[in-house]
């Protein structure tokens, strides 16, 4: 084996046959690290969550392909829908994109949140969660950290889309601050619905099933919303659904903030929905997490 050049390894191979007595250099080195394994003060919940968030970002560095879904996918969504619907719905691409851009940001980011569930499913199957769950730390921190790491990915997706929007002629009246605040609302909501996917991931036994259920929930939510068209054009029953759809309120809030308009009641409704998702699906997730396998 080519990796056998370290000093520790050299002594080991020379002096540690089967049944070696304690006291060979290799074993002394092991004993030394055992003795020095003093326990530092226990870390707090925030610190362990951030450590897990850091892990998610390290993974991006080693597996950069993971960034496709937060770069190419949003770009395709933006271009596709702007050019398909732009002319028909608003007369021109430039006119439509003023209306459409905040909505498509919401849609793309919310769609990407699905990957949280499949990532957790894969982690559980590979066994690394056994290690995390056997550590003496605040138990939700592995999941919170993963969602925090994903929030960074959502931020990347949002930034990419803002860039594409600007190139296509989007001119948000709220200015940079309004756009950033709008994105913050989207990130908050995305973090919260992430808990639905973590719960589903712990409920289902395969990442394919997790994906399927997530799609089933998200497709109606994203299309039966005010993302593409104004709900006043819809039949009454559908308009009513769009009115209670939390995504519509996220879109409205984002439009208000990015468009420089006054923030209406939608923002409050978004906060309530977000809190509700965390309060309901957070404990459900942790309940399943006790026996995760």
């Amino acid at each position: 084996m080519s990796e056998q050049t370290g000093t520790g390894r050299t002594t080991r191979t020379e002096t540690a046959p089967t049944g070696a007595n304690t006291g060979t250099p290799a074993q002394q080195a092991l004993l030394a690290v055992l003795v020095s394994g003093e326990r530092p003060p226990a870390p707090n919940a925030l610190s362990t969550s951030i450590t897990f968030g850091h892990r998610a970002l390290l993974k991006i560095r080693h597996v950069p392909e993971q960034l496709f879904d937060v770069t190419l996918f949003p770009i395709i969504m933006t271009l596709l829908f702007t050019f398909i619907f732009g002319g028909a719905l608003a007369g021109s691409v430039e006119d439509y994109i003023q209306f459409f851009m905040p909505g498509v940001i919401v849609q793309s980011v919310v769609m990407i949140t699905m990957y949280t569930g499949t990532t957790i499913r894969n982690d559980i199957e590979k066994g690394v969660f056994d290690r995390f769950r056997s550590l003496p730390i605040w138990r939700p921190s592995a999941l919170v950290g993963m969602l925090l790491g994903d929030t960074v990915r959502f931020l990347i997706a949002s930034a990419v889309m803002v860039g594409v929007g600007l190139l296509l002629g989007w001119r948000p009246q709220g200015g940079p601050v309004g756009v950033m605040l709008g994105i913050l609302v989207v990130l908050l909501f995305s973090f919260s619905i992430g808990w639905i996917w973590t719960f589903i991931a712990l409920l289902m036994r395969s990442s394919g099933a997790v994906m399927g259920v997530s799609m089933m929930v998200l497709m109606p939510l994203t299309f039966a919303s005010n993302i593409f068209v104004s709900p006043t054009t819809l039949p009454g029953w559908l308009e009513a659904f769009v009115g209670v759809n939390p995504l519509s309120h996220v879109v409205t809030s984002a439009r208000e903030l990015m468009g420089g308009a006054e923030l209406g009641s939608s923002f409050l409704i978004v906060l309530l929905w977000s809190a509700g998702f965390v309060l309901v699906f957070g404990p459900l997730t942790m309940w399943r997490y006790r026996d995760a396998r």
């Binding site: 326990r39 450590t51 897990f52 892990r55 993974k59 080693h62 590979k126 690394v128 550590l135």
Partner: peptide
């Protein structure tokens, strides 16, 4: 039974991660 490690990360990163989690 199966390596309880993050296969995408390096060995060094794995140990540092666990170290951080222990405080």
């Amino acid at each position: 039974q199966f390596a309880s490690l993050d296969e995408d990360l390096t060995g060094r990163d794995n140990l540092r991660l666990i170290g951080r989690l222990f405080g």
